[in-house]
Amino acid sequence: MKLYISFFVIIAFSLTVLGQVDNRKKSISIPAVKSNNDFSESKSLFPSKPINNSSLKNIKIPKRSTSLNLPKKEFSMFPEEEFGNPGELYEKQINKNLDNLKLSEKELALKNGSTTDQYFGDFKSNGKFVNVVYRDHGYVDGDMIRVLVNDDVIKSSVFLSGGYKGLKIDLQKGFNKIDFLALNQGESGPNTAEFQVTDDKGNIVSSNRWNLATGVKATVIIVKE
């Protein structure tokens, strides 16, 4: 009986061992497959060689602009106007008034134009006539005058240019009063002019300058004996 049991145990053990060996022989080892998508062997996203420019001969490549040319001013259908600072304009006017306070009455008249009639004296001449010429001695800005002789209007409106212009006046015996009346003060003011009076031989009888406000006159008298 014991011999039978021992024989059975040996056979069972042998079957178990053989089953384990058989199982090892039937196992299949699967080798790792190398992926074609390996990052190290993947194709570069960019070409490894530069593009041959010869293939682009007929293609115009636009140039790069390194800066943007933006308009400096916005377009407007209306004319542009520049407005000054009201504070600065007020300050300039105050300074101008203070400067005027520092000037004498004569200096102020020369700067802003005399508001009283100017008398340049009387001169003697035995000639038959005199030539009277005048011009704007300052900036030509549209100054205009009227010329009167013995209160008669000889030239009603004369534009003062940079060159001399004038008229011939026949002298009467006694006083010959010549008035130059300022009709305006031009664009910059005052009415500025230079005049000369010469006799019939070309000798200068009188010459002077004026700075007049509008409506003010300058007078010179030629006395014929």
Rank of each mutant, 00 (worst) to 15 (best):
D122Y: 07
G138N: 10
Y164T: 08
D122C: 01
Y119R: 11
V158F: 10
D122Q: 11
D151K: 14
N150H: 10
D122N: 11
H137M: 09
K111P: 09
F123G: 03
L103R: 14
Q172F: 11
I178C: 05
G113T: 06
Y139S: 11
K173M: 08
S157F: 00
V158G: 08
V133C: 00
F123C: 02
G113I: 07
F123A: 06
M144G: 00
D141H: 07
Y139R: 13
V153T: 15
V147D: 07
F123W: 05
D151V: 01
Y164Q: 12
E105P: 09
V153Y: 05
K168Q: 14
G138M: 01
K106V: 04
K124N: 13
Y139V: 15
F159L: 15
S125Q: 03
G174I: 10
N112C: 01
F175C: 07
G127S: 15
L103S: 04
K106E: 14
K111G: 07
K155W: 10
S161Y: 03
F123N: 09
G163K: 12
L171S: 12
S161F: 04
E107G: 03
G121H: 08
F175V: 14
R146T: 05
N176C: 00
M144R: 12
V130P: 10
F120G: 05
Y134I: 11
R135S: 09
F159I: 05
R146C: 03
K165H: 06
I169V: 14
E107Y: 07
V140E: 13
F180C: 00
D136C: 03
L160E: 06
L167R: 12
D122V: 04
K165Q: 13
V147L: 14
D143Y: 05
L171H: 10
Q172C: 03
F120M: 07
I178M: 04
Y134Q: 05
I178R: 09
F159Q: 12
V147C: 02
F175I: 11
K124S: 13
K124Q: 12
F123R: 08
K111A: 07
F120Y: 13
K165L: 07
S156P: 06
N126H: 10
G127I: 02
V153L: 01
L148F: 08
